[in-house]
């Protein structure tokens, strides 16, 4: 009897160890058509910017679906998905195939720019900042000729509680300058909360600057209630002299939402080039074939509902650096900022 119970239990346990189909739901099928349908559906349900960008995603399905069948190759699937996603013109939308012969891409204007030819921090360090310092996690700062402060923010990837002390150190060093240049060119995006905190170190007043909502369901109008973002004085002290913010086409995501916050401050002027135009939060997902992709999941606007998605924030003064000038050690946008603060 004991032996029978033992054998029964053993078989039962063996069955439990390999019953994916019984115990779990069905994995999504991995053929070209299923992959296309899956990607299209994920965007249909989670992408937050069809309406602001006036994109008819249903039409995209009918147009591109006809180009795929179950015998399509990986290369053909890639080409069709690339053409379809390019309709979105969004630097937060991208595809990362697992096939090393198929290059990853994003679909915004940055995909058309071969390299960053209009900014390099080494030019500023070598030709403008005699004595620069670096404060973790991402602040390069110093004092330029004419007693003008300079802060380059490499990224916005840390949370506000970790930024108070470094900002204290940076602003303490620059507190007696007549103005500060905040340079958000180059680098990468990060956390909107970081930008909110840093902007709060430049004001003593409350300013509402942004409204956000994200998809919370599959329907086209399934969004969360809008969240309003504001800045107010942060830290033990704030820098309230004149500020010039330097931007260019690679100023993206959390850097841009930081710019929206700074744009509410009367003492701030923007110099350089238009920002990237990719504000929304982005999530990373994968397809049944293992390829990765990213989606913008919400609508990020100014507090009074202006959307710069796909457009970018234009500067107050347009200055587009030339590669030849930079290679010779001249950053024209920086020099314009210095001129304004002088």
């Amino acid at each position: 009897m004991t032996r029978k119970i033992f054998i029964t239990l053993s078989l039962f346990i063996l069955a439990l160890t390999s019953c994916d189909k019984v115990l779990l739901n069905e994995e999504v099928s991995n053929d070209p058509v299923s992959n296309f349908d899956y990607l299209w559906t994920e965007f249909n349900e989670k992408y937050g910017l069809f309406e602001p960008k006036s994109i008819n995603w249903d039409s995209a399905y009918y147009h591109y679906r006809s180009k795929i069948n179950t015998s399509s190759s990986e290369e053909e699937l890639y080409a069709v998905l690339k053409d379809m996603l390019m309709l979105l013109q969004d630097d937060h939308v991208g595809l990362v195939p697992t096939n090393p012969n198929l290059p990853p891409f994003t679909t915004g204007h940055l995909s058309k720019i071969d390299c960053m030819k209009d900014f390099d921090l080494s030019v500023i360090k070598n030709h403008y900042l005699a004595d620069f310092k670096f404060e973790e996690p991402f602040f390069t700062y110093g004092i330029l000729e004419g007693n003008i402060g300079y802060i380059h923010i490499e990224g916005f990837s840390d949370m506000p509680k970790n930024l108070e002390k470094p900002m204290d150190i940076v602003l303490e060093h620059l507190k007696d300058t007549k103005g500060v240049i905040v340079d958000v060119r180059g680098g990468y995006g990060g956390e909107d909360l970081a930008g909110q905190y840093i902007a709060g170190r430049f004001t003593k007043e409350y300013h509402q600057y942004m409204k956000t909502r994200v998809k919370n369901g599959p329907g086209p109008n399934d969004f969360t209630q809008p969240e309003f973002w504001s800045i107010n004085q942060e830290g033990d002290f704030q820098y309230t002299n004149s500020v010039v913010v330097l931007t260019h086409r690679f100023t993206i995501s959390a850097r841009e939402t930081f710019c929206l916050a700074m744009a509410t401050l009367p003492q701030v002027t923007f110099v350089g080039d238009t920002t990237a135009g990719a504000f929304s939060n982005q999530i990373n997902r994968e397809m049944p074939n293992g390829w990765g992709f990213s989606i913008s999941i919400g609508q990020w606007t100014t507090a009074n509902d202006i959307s710069y998605e796909g457009i970018g924030i234009p500067p107050d003064i347009l200055v587009q650096n030339k590669e030849i000038d930079l290679l010779a050690g001249k950053d024209e946008a920086l020099e314009k900022a210095i001129e304004l603060l002088n």
Binding site: D192, L193, T212, V214, D222, I283
Partner: peptide
């Protein structure tokens, strides 16, 4: 996690 895995409450 919520639907889009992003709560976005500042």
């Amino acid at each position: 996690q919520p639907y889009t895995l992003d709560p976005s409450l500042p």
